[in-house]
């Protein structure tokens, strides 16, 4: 553990805080994944892990290696960019797929397409 001993304490404390906070946010998101009752509720849980957890943990890593100046910190920037751009797309598509399936199976529980009757929808 040679590189961590070089980290001054004014940088070490924020790194620890950001890391722990980010991990806690990720854990909260996953707890939501098992605690929330319906699928549409659970759809909200992973966004905490991405928008909170990923950004905080990557910030901790960036701060650590920027102070140490041991390597470039662009990978974290790219990870933040990819995750913030891609996860909403995944969740949006998943929500639409779930809505589509629920409309076919249990049309009562979900709102129908406005302006179209449900029978036409299921054909």
């Amino acid at each position: 553990m040679s590189h961590l001993t070089d980290l001054p304490s004014w940088a070490a404390i924020p790194v620890c805080m950001l890391l722990l906070l980010g991990a806690a946010m990720t854990l909260i998101g996953s707890i939501g994944l098992i605690r929330l009752p319906s699928f549409y509720d659970r759809l909200h849980a992973p966004t905490i892990a991405t928008s909170g957890g990923t950004v905080l943990i990557c910030l901790a890593s960036m701060l650590c290696f920027a102070v140490l100046q041991s390597r470039w910190i662009f990978h974290e920037l790219l990870i933040i960019f990819f995750i913030t751009v891609t996860t909403p797309v995944t969740l949006m598509l998943l929500g639409q797929a779930a809505l589509y399936r629920n409309r076919l199976e249990k049309p009562r529980d979900v709102p129908q397409t406005p302006g179209r009757p449900s029978k036409e929808d299921s054909q």
């Binding site: 990720t26 892990a49 990923t54 990870i79 996860t87 797929a97």
Partner: peptide, 18 residues
């Protein structure tokens, strides 16, 4: 349902990356 499993898989990917 299958969509719950996919949601779990997506979360698992992100957690593994972190």
């Amino acid at each position: 349902r299958a969509q719950d499993r996919i949601l779990g898989l997506d979360t698992l990917y992100i957690n593994a990356m972190l």
